[in-house]
Design a binder for these strands. Structure first.
Length: 394
DNA sequence: TCTGGGGTCCTAGGACCC
DNA sequence: TCTGGGGTCCTAGGACCC
């Protein structure tokens, strides 16, 4: 039996709102909603606690948020600031432990095992971590502490905002007992519905079923569910892993079945994906297209290429062929997405070693030049005719 | 009420190969 | 004529997370 670990889960408090408040202090103390404009098709990305008091939640349509809280200040997201602050948070956290895993832009796991001499008790570790984040970024966070990732994460969720909660080793099961199953990561709306239909409304009820009971009720994954309900989780805190897919998608302001418009959107998205692949030094072997009809019916289509690519033109041609062969022509679409999966690091592909034809070399230089201009002047500085037309409409 | 955009992981069927 | 078992890859859809 190994000695228990000490895991911290650091969760930034309404991250986007807090970042916006640093840049515009007049937002402090007011209900703030970061997301799309109130009458757009956007959803709430982050809401301040003043807005949450009116029932506003993240992922809620902006129009609904506006109805619930008419006085809220709507701030459009995506100034590119958030990644910058996310990096600062990561830097601050790495001064506390070498084992830091950013789970997303606004949350991280730290394995603090063995740092007691340096930082003191788990609660002192938490205090000092919060101080480090505040000092380096000016941003508030909540901290959950437990013997594993899952318990630490649930703890941080319960003590928000600006809170701290420590669940000592051995107390996991008692801590989880009264909570709703949905508090467990991985148990979403669908799973919770199924549990509710069985009369299960607390994690304690899952514990009481026992390993065997859970297996009978939930099949092969039942035992895993039971173990997690008891507070066991073996996932270690690791370093950030390689990306597995790169995609861009967009919902139109109004639904459209116009072939030329749709082709323009596909071109635009393909250029974005291609640019991101090249910036990351990646090649995609599979191109995916996502399309959603007006009624929200969503489909994906994929094609695996003979040769991996990061070329906008290949991405566009493939996505366009998929779109035109699959979609029902007169049915309006509300969303299109283009993505690359099955990724290889550039140079990993063996085909390149055979010597690229001169044409490919020319193309590569052109794309390199485009990327350089975009680096300096922004994405819109260079676009194909088709994607330019699309941008002008939108 | 009317549903963003970026991801990860899982499942399941079919093709194909040995 | 009736028919294996295992493995991998591809594709589509869906649950879930922030």
């Amino acid at each position: 039996m190994q000695p228990p670990r000490t895991i911290l889960h650091v969760d930034m408090d309404c991250f986007y709102v807090s970042v916006e408040r640093l840049h515009d202090p007049s937002l402090v103390g007011r209900p703030v909603i970061v997301g799309g404009p109130p009458n757009s098709r956007g959803v709430v990305a982050s809401a301040s606690y003043e807005a949450r008091a009116f029932g506003v939640r993240s992922a809620m349509p902006c129009s609904q948020a506006h109805r619930l809280c008419p006085d809220a200040v709507f701030v459009s997201s995506g100034h590119g600031r958030y990644s910058e602050y996310s990096r600062k948070v990561a830097e601050a956290l790495r001064t506390m432990s070498p084992l830091v895993e950013m789970a997303s832009q606004d949350e991280a796991y730290l394995d603090m095992t063995g740092t007691e001499r340096l930082w003191g008790s788990p609660v002192q570790m938490g205090e000092r971590t919060r101080e480090a984040v505040r000092r380096e970024t000016g941003l508030p966070c909540s901290i959950g502490i437990g013997p594993n990732r899952m318990v630490a994460k649930i703890a941080s969720g319960l003590c928000k905002p600006a809170g701290m909660l420590w669940v000592p080793a051995g107390c996991e099961a008692e801590f989880l007992r009264p909570l709703a199953p949905g508090e467990m990561p991985g148990v979403g709306t669908k799973a919770q519905e199924r549990l509710r239909a069985l009369g299960i409304g607390t994690i304690g009820q899952i514990q009481d079923l026992g390993a065997e009971g859970c297996r009978q009720l939930f099949g092969p994954h039942g035992e895993e569910l039971w173990r997690r309900a008891c507070g066991e989780s073996s996932a270690v805190v690791g370093h950030d892993e390689a990306v597995k897919s790169v995609s861009n998608e967009t919902t139109f302001d109004r639904d459209s079945a116009d072939a030329e418009f749709l082709a323009g959107v596909v071109a635009h998205l393909s250029e974005k994906v291609g640019g991101r692949l090249r910036a990351a030094g990646l090649l995609a072997r599979t191109v995916t297209l996502k399309y959603r009809y007006a009624g929200f019916e969503t489909h994906t289509a994929a094609r695996t290429l003979d040769a991996p690519t990061c070329d906008d033109r290949v991405l566009r041609r493939t996505a366009l062929e998929l779109l035109e062969s699959r979609r029902t022509p007169d049915r309006p679409l509300r969303l299109l997405g283009v993505g690359g999966t099955n990724l290889l690091a550039e140079g990993e592909g063996q085909l390149d070693l055979l010597g690229a034809p001169a044409d490919d070399e020319k193309r590569r230089k052109l794309l390199g030049a485009i990327d350089a201009v975009r680096d300096k002047h922004g994405f819109s500085a260079v676009q194909t005719a088709a994607s330019r037309r699309e941008e002008e409409r939108g």
